[in-house]
Design a protein around this nucleic acid. Sequence first.
DNA 1: GGAAACACGTGATCC
DNA 2: TGGATCACGTGTTTC
Lengths: 230, 230
Amino acid sequence: MDTASFLAPQLTTTSQDEASSFTFNGYPFCLHPWFEGFAEDRAASASRSHSEAEKRRRDRINAQLATLRKLIPKSEKMDKAALLGSVVEHVKEMKNKTMEISKYIMIPTDVDEVTIDYVNDEYWSSTNKDKFLLKASVCCDDRPELFSELDRALKSLRLTTIDANITSLGGRIKAIFILSANNSVEGGICMNTLRESIKVVLTRIATSCSTTGSNYRIKSKRQRFFLPSY
Amino acid sequence: MDTASFLAPQLTTTSQDEASSFTFNGYPFCLHPWFEGFAEDRAASASRSHSEAEKRRRDRINAQLATLRKLIPKSEKMDKAALLGSVVEHVKEMKNKTMEISKYIMIPTDVDEVTIDYVNDEYWSSTNKDKFLLKASVCCDDRPELFSELDRALKSLRLTTIDANITSLGGRIKAIFILSANNSVEGGICMNTLRESIKVVLTRIATSCSTTGSNYRIKSKRQRFFLPSY
DNA sequence: GGAAACACGTGATCC
DNA sequence: TGGATCACGTGTTTC
């Protein structure tokens, strides 16, 4: 067999099986079982990967359900629907509880935040023409003397603290100050400038948690102070 | 055909089909298709009730999942596993938050109280030989500028506020100050004198709630400041 | 036997 | 097109 006849093979189908039996340069070939097997493999592997993927999906869902079961008391013998119902109840209940608590106290969130807003209080503005109110809200990591720093910063901006509400919880702190500022210079630009100044200063304090010069690390020992008193 | 023969029918199986072909009071009956249909119906109805029951079960589970989806923010486009993962996170987070709250929150009581205690902190006393720690606890009616008054009083006694934890709840306030005092004069008598001084001063502030000269009664409006911020 | 609950594989649908 | 998700009907087990 020369190279040319190999490169230009003569395909001759036989009469036995027109589709898959033929001769290749005189050698008998039968593609039928191979193609059949290939087709079967393709279908089978597709089906297999499909069912395997579906099993993985089921396992993922069931793993989360198992985790939930550990978190919810008395849910060991519940079926899936009952378990999920119990989860719904728990989430609702905790949501309500948090709402209830949030009505009375501030719960620090996990995100650092400083906001400064004007406060319109009719009584205040009617009796204090030359001053206006601001509400400064700070949420950040708690640390010793954070409070003094905030206080000093507000004083340095000639702000009077009318009211303050501070809650520290789990190493986080949320503070809201009601501030009175002199309205000596008229115009919104000045008020906005002051507002921005407050924001900048408070943000700097709020975000300098670990870089403070305080060498007394009371933070890790805080529980000792507060826990025994209730 | 009389009533008796109808009530006590004579069943006679034929030779053609022993099982299902017979005569009923002379009338030829063939139960075969009926029984066959019944058998088919039984199987079919069993299968149907099975699949229907299974559908009800799926619907129950999916309904709870839909409820959970409404309760969990940002879960609209999640698949089931991700949704459940998010639920797990939320439950864990809320559990932790509740634990934290119950561990740390001070709930002001209805009785006015001022207590001053020494704090023994090994680390503090080892690194601050010339100072000692006090814990001052104040529980009284809340009012504007109570805080400033307390702060001023503590400062006037040359006390440094290392840490402060204040919670106001329902018009009452509970404040705990961790104070650092100079140990310049040796001896426990002086320390006790200071302790008594602090107590007297703080008690005076705590019990002068309604007699304060502050003419701005912000108290009834406090919630306006705090509620919208969450 | 039968209802309930679960896992499984499959068809359909959507990027 | 393949990969991922879902609903569905079925086989199986348990009480």
